[in-house]
């Protein structure tokens, strides 16, 4: 699922849109009626929904305790000082609270949603130019969350987690660099002297390996 070569000329006539994530909504209450193969909705998702739907401060405090130290760890790896990192963590967590109405558990895992907020915050701070974001999609009816889509997404994420454990340490490190480091390809090049193609192919190797692992986990 993760990577294919850039092939500019072919510019991709694409497969038809998949209806998966946009499937008909079902109330969350039905989650308990799903067959045994389905898992519970994760506690992080439950906290996030409580924040979104009820502005639940206790749930937000739980989210803070879970994500803030992890965010801080990642940010400090990029060379920020302790207090700079805490400033960024505060910004990110406040954004989580303020943008909670845009969280859709059928479209994104909480951690992935927090990840992209943190990524943008870091880019805004460290680069002269911004990273423009897609137009926000409103969550049209919060009472109609699609429980089965939410659980399916969490199961996919579990598979991804398993696949990640099978990466070699070096490949894992490469992916962490790619996802966490606040540098574009060209900036990495100027710091390491590595040609762009080498950097891209290393990242691609790590992603290819991950895709391969995902296939094995899925069969």
């Amino acid at each position: 699922m993760l990577v294919q070569d850039y092939n500019p000329a072919s510019a991709q006539p694409c497969p038809p849109t998949q209806s998966g994530s946009m499937a008909a909504a079902r109330p969350l209450a039905e989650a308990s009626n799903l067959p045994d193969t389905q898992t519970e909705i994760s506690v992080q998702t439950q906290w996030m929904l409580a924040v979104r739907d009820a502005r639940d401060r206790d749930a937000f405090a739980q989210l803070f305790d879970y994500f803030a130290p992890r965010l801080k760890g990642v940010i400090m790896r990029n060379g920020s000082t302790d207090s700079q990192a805490e400033d960024i963590v505060q910004d990110v967590m406040l954004t989580v609270w303020r943008k909670a109405h845009l969280f859709d558990p059928a479209r994104a895992q909480v951690s992935a949603w927090v990840y992209q907020i943190a990524r943008n915050r870091q880019i805004d701070l460290h680069r002269a130019a911004k990273r423009p974001l897609p137009e926000d999609l409103p969550v049209l009816d919060q009472a109609q969350d699609d429980a089965s889509a939410t659980i399916a997404l969490e199961q996919e994420t579990e598979k991804l987690r398993k696949a990640l454990t099978k990466l070699k340490p070096q490949q894992r490190e490469m992916l962490e660099q790619a996802y966490f480091h606040d540098r574009s390809h060209s900036e990495i090049k100027s710091q390491t002297g590595l040609p762009l193609g080498t950097i891209k192919s290393r990242i691609r190797l790590a992603l290819d390996r991950l895709r391969h692992e995902l296939k094995e986990v899925n069969t």
Binding site: L2, R70, L71, G73, A85, A108, Y115, L160, R161, E176
Partner: peptide, 14 residues
């Protein structure tokens, strides 16, 4: 974006 989320969950905490 999902791998970013999983890596974040598993990141060393400070």
């Amino acid at each position: 974006e999902a791998p970013g989320g999983v890596l974040l969950e598993e990141a060393a905490a400070a």
